[in-house]
Design a protein around this nucleic acid. Sequence first.
RNA 1: GCCGAUGUGGUGAAACUGGCAUACACGCAGCUCUCAAAAAGCUGUGGCUAUAACAAGCCGUGAGAGUUCGAGUCUCUCCAUCGGCACCA
Length: 991
Amino acid sequence: MKQSVNLDTSKNSPPAHFQEDSSGRQARYDHRAIEAKWAKIWKDTKLNEAPISSGIDPSTMLRIRPLRPYYNLMMFPYPSAEGLHVGNMYAFTGSDIFGRYMRMKGYDVFEPIGLDGFGIHSENFALKIGRHPMDHAVITEKNFYAQLSKIGAMFDWSRTVETYNPNYYRWTQWLFVQMFKQGLAYRAKASVNYCPSCKTVLADEQVIDGLCERCKSVVEKRLLEQWFFRITTYAERLLGNLDGMDWTEKVKIAQKNWIGKKEGIEIHYPVKDTKEEIVCFTTAPVNFGMTFIVISPQHEFVAKIVRGEIAVSKEKSKEIAEYAQACAKRKKEVGEKEKTGVNTGLFATNRVAGWDVPIWISDFVVKEVGTGAVQGCPAHDTRDFEFARKFGLPIKRVVMGPDGDMSEVDTVGKVIVHGMNGTMVNSEFLNGLPFEEGLQKTMDFVEKKGWGKRVSTYHLRDWLISRQRYWGPPIPMIYCGKCAKVGKGEKNDMPGWYSVPEKDLPVVLPRIEDYKPGDDGIAPLAKHKEFFNVACPSCGSAARRETDVSDTFLDSSWYFLRYPSVGNIKSQSPNPNTQQGSNLQSPITNDQQGMKNSKNTSMLSEAKSSGLEIGDWKLDIPWNPEVTRQWLPVEMYTGGAEHSVLHLLYSRFIWKALRDWGYLDFSGEAGPRLARQDPASQDSAWDEPFSTFFAHGLVIKDGSKMSKSKGNVVNPDEYIATYGADALRIYLMFMGPFSQGGDFRDSAMEGVSRWLNRVWRIVTTSIHNTQSPISNAQHFALLNKEGSGEKIAKALNKLVKKVGEDMEHRRYNTAIASMMEFTNLVADARLLALQQGDSARQEGGALAVDQAQVLVKLLAPLAPHLAEEMWELLNQPSAISRQSSDKTGELKEIKSETTHYPLRTTNYISVHIEPWPEVDESILAEDEVTVAVQINGKTRATIVTSLATIKEESAFVSLCQSDGRIKKYLDGKTIVKTIVVPGKLINFVIE
RNA sequence: GCCGAUGUGGUGAAACUGGCAUACACGCAGCUCUCAAAAAGCUGUGGCUAUAACAAGCCGUGAGAGUUCGAGUCUCUCCAUCGGCACCA
C-alpha cells in the first residue's frame, strides 16, 4: 500500500509520479521518506527556532528584519502514561496549524514544548509500574520527546522546559519564597480534602464529585495544618478582568462561577444570657420570616459550648459534642440531603423582627460557606424549609406569591425563594414592597441600626499548596523550634518559619527509595533526617526543613514565563542550542549519587551554573526581562477546557502577583509585541498572562471518552507509521470543528490519506506541464478553451479567501473540506480534457505550476512535510527525478552564509516561511450567479444568469415569472408580494 | 437543583450575518481498468409516493407552539444526551 515511487526513469519518459509503473500501480507519495527527510532538514537548519533574542537568527547569528514576536503556546503534557495520547496530538496539531499559519502571515512564531512531569499524576503511574519516579522521568522524557518530534509541529526544541529539572524547580521554589515574603503564603489548620488512596491532601479544585481527581477515591475531610496561598486576595481582580478577555466563553463562565461572588449582608445576633453573638451571612434577609438559627458543627460557637465556655446543661453539652464528633467522622454521600441536627437550647435575638429564635446545629451548614451560620427562614429557603419540617420549627410566610397565594407554606413547592417574584407581607414596614426591594430595605435598616454590614462572599478559597508526597519540589521553608518559642520568625505572624535563602536554592529533591506515601499523612521526606536536618538561617541552631512538596499546579502556573528565557541564559551564546543537551540529561539521571544529592552538591552547582552566570542580565529572577518584555504575555494559548478552574486560574493569579511585586515590567519603550497592543487597553492586557485562550474539543472513540479502562485509547504511533503524520494531522482536524472535538474512526482516516495522494498527483502532474512542450501560458490557454482554466483560477482565488478565514477562526475542518472541493474541481477539468481526447492535457494536469504553488501554501500548515516536498519539486523541477531517492545529504549545504533565513538558498526557501497567498479581490466577484426562485418560500427553480441581468430588477422579475417552471405556479394566481434578495433569491408570494 | 454545551442522512459532519438543508468525507450499491485481486477512477445514494423511462409531487434539521414573504438558524415551552458546579445560606 505504501508503495514508494518507482524512480527508474529513463530520460524521455515522464517522471514516475504520474505514471503507472510496470505493475500497473499509480504513485502514492512515500510518507516515511518525505517526513524523515524534512524533519531532519528542519532540525539541521533550525527552521523552527524562534529568533528570541531581539531578532537574532539562530542559524546565522545575523539580525533579521525587526522582530514580530508571536508566542503560540499549547498546554504542555504530563507524561503519566506509556506515551503520547492521540488526544495530546489533537491539541498540539490544532495549535501548531495556527502557529504555522501565523508564521506564513509574517510573524516570528515561538512555539515551545515541555513536560509537566512532576506531581501526583506521574508519581502514581511510577508507583503502579514499580519504577522509581526519577528513572521513570528519564524514560518518559525520551519517549515523549521522540514521539512529539514526529507529529510535524514547529516546536522550538532548543527551549524545552521540564518541571522536574532542578534548573526549573529551583525557580518554582523561588516563587514559593516570594509568596512567603509577600505574605501570600501561610500555614493554617483547616478542614481539608484528604484522599485516603493518594494519601495526601487535595485542593478544592482537585475534588470532583467528592472524589479524588486522580484516583477516584472518596475524599475525606481532615483537620490538618497545611500551606496555603492567598488567592482569595485576588478574587476581585481575577473576576474583574474576565469580561474583556478574548477567551473561550465557557471557560470564562466556569471561572466566574468558581470565583462565585455573592453580595449579601452579615447580621449580628446576640445570644441571650451570654456575651456571645452569632453572625449570619445571607443574600436574602427575610427577617420577619426568620424562626431559627443553624450553625455548622465546626463553628467556633460549638467548640465553646463543648469546652464549657458557654453554659448549657451537662446533657446538652454531651449531646452536642457527640453530634459534632459524629459529623466530623461521617463521610457524606454526594447529594445527600437528609437533614440531621441538634438543638442547643440557647436563643438569639432577631432584632429586626423583635423576637428570639432557637439556635440549632446541623451539618447542612458548611463552616467555610459564608460565616458558617445561617438564619433560618423556612418559608423562603428550601433547605431551611426541610430543616424546619424535620424538627417541627415554625414556618412563617412573609412573601405573597405573584398569584396572590397566601396559603400556609406546607410543601417545598410553595417556598418562594430569593430571585422569584412576590410581595412582602406580614413584615411591618416592608409590607407591599416587591420581594427584592424588601430585602434591600431590610439591609438598609440593619446597616443603619449598626446590626450588620453588607459584604461580598466568594466561593473561591485559598489555594492549598502542600502535598504529603515525594515527587514534587520540596517546599523551601525551614522551621526553627527555638525561634518559635521566643516568637521570632521571618514574618511576624509566623513564628519559627524562615524561607530558604535564595542563594541556597534549589532545595534538591533527594533520591530516596522509600518514596511511597505513608498512611499516617506524613510526607516521605519526613523520614530522612539527612534531608530535613538543617541549621536555622536566623539563630543557627538545629532546625527542620519542611518535608511536604508543592502542588503540581504550582509548577505549571509559570512555565510559559520560562520558555523564552531558556537558551537566553547567556544571551550572546554562539550556540543557544547547547541547553537542550543538559535538559535531556538532567542531573536526576545521575542516580548513583543517591542521597549525596541531598547535600546539594553536584545538582546544585549545575543549577547554579545555568542560573547565575548571566551575560547581560543579573539573574535574580527566572527570566530575562528584555526577552519577556518582547514575547509576553502569551498571545495565543490553546488547551483543554478541563483546566478552566485549575491551571488557568492559578496562572492568572501567579502572574498578577508577580506583576504586583515588580517582576514583570512591560512599561517603558514598547517593543513590537507591545506596539500591537492598543495603548488604551495596555495595562489590563498586561494584567493577564494569556491574551487569547482557545479551548479545543475532546477526541472521543465510539461515542465515549478515551480511557484505559474502556480500552479505547488510540496511540498515534501506529497511524503515523501507516499513513504518515501529515495524514493523521489532517484527519484529526477534519473529524469536526477544533473547538468541539470529534469521533475517531479508522475508516475515515483512509479517505484523508487517499485525498493527500490525490493532491500529490495533481501537484506533481502540474510540474510535468513545465517539462512538457506545453508552457504554462499555453496550458492555461488550452484549458481556457472550454472555460475550466478561468474557472479554476477563480475557484483557487476563492479558496485562498476561504482557507484564510477558516484558519483565523481555527475552523480547520471546513478549510480542509473546501480544499477537497477544489481538488475535485481540478480532477473534473482533467477528466473533461481526457473525454475530449486532448492528449496534451491528458498527460498534463489541469493546474498550472503557479496555481499548484498556491495550493501547496494553503496546505502547508496542515500537512507540513508533504507540502514542503511538493514545494521543493515546484521550485526545482529539475530535481524531480532525484527527489525521492534517499539522498537527503545533498541538501546539507542548504544553509547559506549570505542570507538571513534558514533554508533560504539561491533557489530554495522553505514553504513554511513563504508569505501566505493573497486574495485577488479583482477576480473575486462573480459575473454569473445562481438565483433561487421561490413560490411562498419554497424553491421551485434556480436560474443561472449574469450580474448585468439582475441589475435590471423589474426586467429580471418578469423573466423569472415567464420561466416555464415558475409560470405554472403563477397561472391564475395573484402575486401579493415579491421579495428580491439581490443575487440570491426571488420569492413570489401568491394568492 | 444551578450553570454551560449539543441534538441535522446508515456514520463523522456543513450551512459563519434568517435566504437553494444535507457541502466535504466515510460507508454502501453499481460500473471501468484487470486473468484476478489490490490500487486508482466513474456513477448513484435523506424519506415517502410515483414512473418503462424522463419527469413530477409530498414530507423532512429532537418535540410542540410563535415571529417572518421565508426558520436548522430568532422567541417561548418541553424532551434527550454530554460536561461543570452543588445542602453556597
